[in-house]
Structure formats: structure tokens, C-alpha cells
Design a protein around this nucleic acid. Structure first.
Lengths: 341, 341
DNA sequence: GGCTGAAATGAAAGCGCTTCCATTCTACGC
DNA sequence: GCGTAGAATGGAAGCGCTTTCATTTCAGCC
């Protein structure tokens, strides 16, 4: 804890405060505050003098104090299930880029797909009084919803679609994705259809959409495996082994993520299945590796980064008091046709 | 901004404060503060009464005010270059897990491999008075270093090794990685050696180590391409095309990341190169996909999550006043031998 | 019953900023 | 030269908590 001021005229002990700057620049604290936050209101000469003192002392304003007084923290919190090898990493980057450009900072929370952890995180986050909060998905615990609406701040739910968001939502219909994939597989026609993947609410929606579209046409098989989110390469491989072992004609499979699909693909490839003749696989997410598997993976593409960008823009507009932000902002998705379906 | 209290006895306008709780529970504010922070100091009966009021009102303490008064924010900031498809995502997760368990929160900064942005981030972060800060790498701008040391808080530099960290470092020697890979390739012996990859300080160290070990044995070829960090699949593919076009015997290549290596691999595979006979490729990072490329990628493995875990532990110990934290904490790495080298 | 020390509680000050409102400058017009 | 509006600055209060330090309560004991 050394004194941050190197020059001889070290003002006080501990970190420099706004009051120190005011004293050294022969102005009142208010003027220093204005020089920092609304420089247009300060006479150029005064401003310059203050800035010199700030530079000389290495003063860094205390945003805790500022936030407490102004009730604005320039903090945005985001809760996502995870970042490593998920669709969320790029969303976070998009979010962050936009937020930083607007002078905000990102407080990150990782829920691990656990609603209870989401609740705890929400509480901890709210304690920091962020100017807005971004959540993944539209299913939250009752307590979480209550806490959130009670806090009275802008909320953006991402990666899902709903007619009745808590506040604003940016995403798409997972059921629609499932149906799109079903239609795609139906076009070629397979003897059997299956879905393999995770059990988080969005993956379940995709499965339900898939099953719904195939209702009356085919029964959708599910592997007999416990799979928690995020599902893994190994999960996919095992699931595919099981499906293939069952035998019974050509097979169209919808996987809940590219990672699972990759595992499924590896198993199929190892067994020498012909794709997409005997076997079709459709992934989800269009991860970076998807174009480079053998054969390259057919998958559903969403602009992951764009979800972050749009979420940031929405919340910034909300914070600025813009009442015209749409409750539901839809983002596109489409099937990227490659070698597996 | 609706009143967060649903019950009829809504106390005041705006969010509930500690003073409100005190009033409703017929105790002084100090006692409420203690009930929250040091419950052992409060008589069980009183504690219970206070907790009831807190639950009923949905009170969420204001950590801005708390942090301002106590000079402890329970916030740890981390700056990494990026999260999507990088080695850092899992480090962040490791960090976060450990931090959350200790009651801390993660403020995330993304520098995009840009030292100037790192400086800006550092300033913005310091304004929030975190209890500690974690940076990627050991090369920082002079101003960044000054600001950091002046702030007098625990610092952990990660993903690199140095005898003289700013405070504490958790990582390994990238030069040593380069040398290890050189030794590995040398064992088989190739006619030519090359390195392809990014230009961030750590990638450069790895290259330098690689070059150094081969000095006097072979000249290390570099592709004639602009590659900025993070380098991409496409970069790798183009670089490999160029190297292969030059012709001239068997080739051992060290790539600065698995992503680049994957690109290089794809090009080599497309051209029908025999690996690791005619061509050897070694990646870096052991990304999730590395085990599943064709052929599977030989690469350097580091426990990415563990770096986050160790960094968190170190900083928490520092915060707790533990003076015995080692200045340099080394993490292991080793070559995972698979099909490409 | 009164003393004692520990347990439990409280009063007051203050963390470092912003906000509101009041005051002082400054330039310009007649 | 004086009045005046607008520009520039300042004083005081307060954001919601924690930190001393002081006071009260209580159990245990002679």
C-alpha cells in the first residue's frame, strides 16, 4: 500500500480523493466533479488546471461513492450458464464490446444451468445495484422473478423467445428450430428419427418442436442416457452408439448442440456409416469446429455475437429512458447445410 | 421502479434500506449490520427477528454503500484477451467457481490482446475499488504497471512465468514450451522446421523458445503472412499451404494454438500429406476438439481451469493477509501425443 | 444483593462522491 | 455606468452502509 503519488507534494495518506484534487487545483469539489462528468460546464482554463492535477496525482475516481450518490453505477450484470465451449462465449463478447463502448462494465455471473444458483447470483448482483441485468433464458424461479421485477431495473432475457418477457427479450424460438430441423430431415425421409442432447429448458424446447413436427409421422427415439447440460462429446458418442446398436433402417438425428453432434458423428464415422445416406446428423450452434469435422457438420446457425450486441443495445436504450424498445427482439437462425444432413 | 415490498406495511418509497429494517425490527442500524455480517455477535432472538423482517421486505443490502464504508468490495476483476474459442474461457470458469465459493464476484474485462485497452480497462476497473485484480500475461504498459502498483491491491498475473511478477504470478514458461516441442520434433528428425501463429507476447515466447532450441541445427521457417492474435483456422490453413508450396523435404511445424494447428492440419490432410511421416504438427492448448481432428492433434496440454483456480486461491489468500503466497506459482504442461507428431 | 466481566446493543462520525440550490462572475446592451 | 441574463462556481446535505467507542444488559459468583 504505497502512496500512489510519486511527486514530492504527496497530498494525503491513502488514495487520492476528489477533495484532494479540489484542494490542489484551488476549486471546490463540485467543480472537480463537473470537470470529470460534465466538462462542458467548466471554464476551459479551470478544466485544464484540474486535469493537470488529476494527471499528476494519478487520481482514479471512486465509482462506489459516485454510484452511491448518483444511483447510477455504469455496471451491467449478465448471467449465463457457462462460457467455455458454449454458445455463450461470443454473446458475452458482443455484449462486452457494446457495453464498454458506452462506458459500462460487465459483471459476469455463471449459473451452471442451475436455477437456484441463478437466484443466488441475482441476489448478489442486485446488491451491487447494476443499471441493468441480462439473463439467459426465460425460465426463472419465482423468487428470482420477484426479486428482479422488484428491483425496478431494465432486464433483458437472451437466447429465447416469449410473448411475455420480464422486460425485454432478445432471442428466437427454440421450438421453431426443432421444427425447422424436422422439416429438413423429413425432406429426405428417414426410417427412424431421434433426438439426443441436454436437458436445459432451451434444449427441451428444441426437442419438443422436433417431436411435435414429426408427430403422426414418426415416433422420435431418445437414447436411454442421463445427460445434463452442458452435454459433451462423450454423451453424443455414447448416444449414437446406442441408437446405432438398436438397428432398424436409416436414421435422422437432431443433436442439442454441435458438441454432442460431434461426438455422435465420431461414432458414426468410426462405424463407417454413410452420411447423409444411412444416417443424418444435425447439430445446433454452428460452433467454430463444425465446418471442419469429417464430414463437415450440418447444423443450425445463430449469430451468437449478435445476440449480445442486440441485448446490449436494448438495455442501453432502456437505461437512457427509451420507452420504444420492443418487448421481443427476434434474431434469425437457419440451417447450414454441410456434409451430415 | 415499483415498490419491492408487496405486503401492506410497505415501509418507505424506493428500495428498502438497512435503516428500514432496523426500524421494523426495533433495533438500531448497527445491529442489523451485524446480523448480516457477523451474526455470531447478535443474540439469537434478535437475529431471528431481524431475519424475519429482511425476508418479509425482500431487503437486498447495498454493497456500494457497504464497500464505501468498509473499503472492501468483495469484487475481483480479471482481464483476459478474449473468451470465445480461447484457452481463457476455462480459466475464467475456474476463477469464478473459486471466487463465488468465497463470496466474491467477478468483474470481467476483455482486452482483445491490446495493451492500450488493457490500460483503459485497468483504470475503469480500479475505479470500482476491487479487492484484487487478475491480469493475463506479464507484459503491460508502463502506465498500467504504475497504476496497478499505486493502487496497492493484490495482483495476480496469469498464463505466464516470471521471476519478478508485479505481485504474484500463476503460469508457466512459454519459452520452455517452445523448447519442449522442439525437442519432441527433433527426436524424429525432420528436414525442415517451421513455426506458425500469432504475435502476442506469449506466442512469441513460445516461438523464441522453439527457435532457440533449434539454433545451430536448423533454421526455423516462418510463413510470410500477417497474423494477429487470436490467430484463426484460416490463418493456419493459409500458412500451411505456403509452407507446403515451398517444398523441400519433411517438415515439423509448431503452431501457436490448436485453432491454427487445426487449420494447418486441414490443409495438409486435403493435400494427402502423411502424418507424422512427411509432416508433423504440434498445436498448443489441447482444446476440446484437438482429440477429434483427423488425424487427432498432437498438442501441448495445460490445465486451463487450474490456472483460474490457483489464481483465485492466491488472490484470496493475499486478501486475507497471508504473506506466504509464493511470488511465482508454476503449473505443469506436457505434450499430448496423438496422431500428428 | 451487589459486583464483575463478558455479551449485546447503540450513537456518532464518516467513507467519497453527486445533487440541489444559491451565489458570484462575466459579457453585453442601452 | 448600470442592469441583466447566462455562465461558472460553491455550500450543504445526503446516498446507505461500517467503524470506532461508549453504554447497557446479563449471567455468574462471593
Amino acid at each position: 500500500m504505497t502512496d500512489p503519488v510519486k511527486s514530492r507534494q504527496a497530498p494525503t495518506r491513502g488514495p487520492v480523493t476528489l477533495a484532494d484534487i479540489a484542494r490542489l487545483a484551488n476549486v471546490s469539489p463540485v467543480t472537480v466533479s463537473r470537470a470529470i462528468n460534465t466538462p462542458a460546464l467548466v471554464k476551459p482554463r479551470t478544466l485544464e488546471a484540474i486535469e493537470r492535477v488529476i494527471a499528476r496525482t494519478g487520481y482514479v475516481p471512486n465509482l462506489l461513492a459516485g454510484g452511491l450518490a448518483s444511483r447510477r453505477t455504469k455496471l451491467i450484470a449478465a448471467i449465463v450458464p457457462a462460457v467455455s465451449s458454449t454458445i455463450f462465449a461470443e454473446t458475452i463478447e458482443g455484449l462486452n464490446t457494446e457495453l464498454v463502448a458506452a462506458g459500462y462494465q460487465l459483471l459476469l455471473g455463471l449459473s451452471g444451468y442451475d436455477p437456484r444458483r441463478e437466484l443466488e447470483l441475482t441476489r448478489a448482483i442486485l446488491a451491487r445495484r447494476p443499471d441493468g441485468i441480462i439473463l439467459t433464458g426465460i425460465t426463472h424461479l419465482k423468487e428470482t422473478r420477484a426479486m428482479l421485477t422488484g428491483a425496478g431495473l431494465p432486464i433483458v432475457e437472451i437466447w429465447d423467445s416469449t410473448p411475455s418477457p420480464l422486460d425485454t427479450a432478445v432471442g428466437f424460438s427454440h421450438a421453431a428450430v426443432g421444427m425447422l430441423v424436422a422439416d429438413h430431415l423429413l425432406r429426405k425421409g428417414y426410417d427412424r428419427y431421434a433426438q439426443v442432447g441436454a436437458n436445459d429448458p432451451r434444449a427441451v424446447q428444441r426437442r419438443d418442436g422436433f417431436v411435435h413436427r414429426l408427430a403422426g409421422i414418426a415416433k422420435v427415439e431418445l437414447p436411454d442416457l442421463e445427460m445434463s447440460s452442458p452435454s459433451t462429446f462423450r454423451d453424443g458418442r455414447q448416444a449414437m452408439a446406442q441408437l446405432l446398436d438398436r438397428g432398424g433402417g436409416t436414421l435422422g438425428v437432431f443433436c442439442s448442440s454441435d458438441v454432442v453432434a460431434h461426438g455422435a458423428l465420431a461414432e458414426a464415422y468410426a462405424r463407417g456409416c454413410r452420411m447423409p445416406g444411412d444416417l443424418a446428423i444435425v447439430g445446433f450452434g454452428d460452433f467454430d469446429f463444425a465446418a471442419h469435422t469429417h464430414p463437415p457438420l450440418t447444423t443450425v446457425r445463430i449469430d451468437r455475437r449478435d445476440i449480445g450486441t442486440k441485448a446490449a443495445q436494448s438495455i442501453l436504450r432502456k437505461i437512457a429512458g427509451d420507452e420504444t424498445v420492443e418487448a421481443m427482439i427476434n434474431v434469425d437462425f437457419h440451417i447450414v447445410m454441410r456434409g451430415t444432413a
